[in-house]
Simulated assay, not measured.
Amino acid sequence: MSEQAPHVQKPGWFTVNVFNRGVAWLTRRGISVWGSRVLEVRGRKSGEWRRTPVNVLTLDGRRYLVAPRGHVQWTHNMRAAGGGRLVVGKRVEEFTATEVLDDAEKTAVLRGYLKRWKAEVGVFFGGVGPDSSDEELLAIAPRHPVFAIAPVQGA
């Protein structure tokens, strides 16, 4: 992983107060918007559940969470907690998470994520898209944490 300073793009007022709340509201009621889920992860300091809407990418039979806005609070909490819950309506899936630390391994995941959700999150990737070269994806990989997720067995 690169030694760059952590990258964070804070959401604007509209995103926090309208878009994220709207997507979360629909998702909590069982309506998934473009594959959305509400991510619940325990706060690394408070231990309280924190919630944010996310998109889960399935690629080659594995599932991933990508942080389009960079090293944000949920990514720090995920590193500390090692997993969390994904919620759609009344369906709750507990999962474990392993961060993908090798930036080269992230390129296919970032490409797949951008192919699916570029219209929604492309602005956070600095002009890099699903048709960009591996080198361009590799250049932005350190700014976008990626977690491989797997369901908790027996949950």
Rank of each mutant, 00 (worst) to 15 (best):
V123Y: 15
V121H: 05
L65A: 00
R111L: 08
T58G: 09
A67E: 01
T75V: 11
Q73S: 14
A97G: 03
T107M: 03
K106Q: 09
N77Y: 12
E94C: 09
L114N: 07
V100S: 08
V88T: 11
D102S: 11
L110R: 00
V88L: 06
A97V: 02
A67C: 07
E105C: 09
G112W: 01
V121D: 06
E120D: 14
M78T: 06
L110A: 00
V54S: 03
E94Y: 11
V88P: 00
K90G: 15
V100L: 14
V121M: 09
R63F: 02
A97I: 01
G89H: 05
L110N: 00
G112A: 08
N77E: 08
V123N: 13
R69G: 09
H71P: 03
H76E: 15
V109R: 05
L101N: 07
D103G: 06
F95P: 00
R79N: 13
T107L: 05
Q73M: 14
N55I: 12
R63H: 13
V54Q: 02
L59E: 14
A80E: 09
R69N: 10
R69A: 15
T96A: 08
T96L: 08
Y113G: 04
K106E: 04
T96Y: 08
A119F: 08
E105N: 08
M78V: 05
G70I: 08
R63P: 03
V66M: 01
D102N: 14
R111D: 06
V123H: 14
R79G: 10
V92D: 06
F95W: 00
K90F: 12
V56H: 08
A67W: 00
R111G: 03
N55T: 14
R62V: 12
E120H: 13
L86E: 00
P68S: 15
V88E: 02
G82C: 06
E94L: 11
L110I: 07
R116F: 03
Y64M: 08
T75W: 06
A81R: 05
N55C: 13
V56W: 02
Q73I: 11
F95H: 02
R111S: 07
K115I: 06
R69L: 10
G70N: 09
H76M: 14
D102K: 08
M78Q: 07
R62T: 10
G61W: 09
